[in-house]
């Protein structure tokens, strides 16, 4: 692996702090176990044997928002659910990211009506949108990998 070559005989590696921290964040990004609707079933498929998200180090779903870094909004968010979703987001410790999975979470999807929030970005800031109704498990995995790419580019001042 690359790191041994960089180590040399000294046992010292030099890297930018940003790279190291961002690398660490992407390798242990724990999603919250939180399903809303149809997309939650595909999210479960993504964790099950055929697709197996854990190959990429993102399998450990935490049932508590206090222990998770990544919120996958899997499904449509109703007006009744919106305050609950925001409260869950507020309970997550920083740094935290949001993936809007599926059309309903991204923009309301086919449900353009009184009951559904037209895109979850009305209530929480979204990092990655995954299209599809529902997206295939591959699409979700790709979405989270895209988020990893984004996190790797974060600089010191973004950390807050």
């Amino acid at each position: 692996m690359g790191i041994e070559q960089k180590l040399g005989d000294m046992g010292v590696v030099t890297a930018r702090l940003e790279d190291l921290v961002n690398w660490g964040r992407t390798r242990a990004m724990w999603p919250m176990l939180f399903g809303l609707a149809c997309c939650a079933i595909e999210m479960m498929s993504a964790q099950a044997a055929n697709y197996d998200m854990s190959r990429f180090g993102m399998e450990l779903m935490r049932a508590s928002p206090r222990q998770s870094d990544l919120m996958i909004v899997a499904g449509r968010v109703s007006r009744k659910m919106a305050p609950v979703l925001r409260r869950l987001y507020d309970q997550m410790p920083d740094p935290k990211w949001v993936v809007a999975m599926g059309d309903c979470a991204s923009c309301g999807g086919v449900f353009n009506n009184y009951a559904i929030v037209q895109g979850v970005d009305e209530i929480v800031p979204v990092d990655v949108y995954v299209g599809g109704c529902p997206p295939r498990p591959e699409a979700l995995i790709h979405g989270i990998m895209t988020l990893h790419e984004k996190v790797k580019l974060e600089s010191f001042k973004d950390w807050s």
Partner: peptide, 21 residues
């Protein structure tokens, strides 16, 4: 039962708008 407890109006009435964006 389905709508939030403080919701105004009764959505499935015909004089209630669909409320689309």
């Amino acid at each position: 039962i389905l709508m939030p407890f403080d919701w105004e109006g009764h959505p499935l009435r015909k004089d209630y708008p669909l409320g689309y964006e």
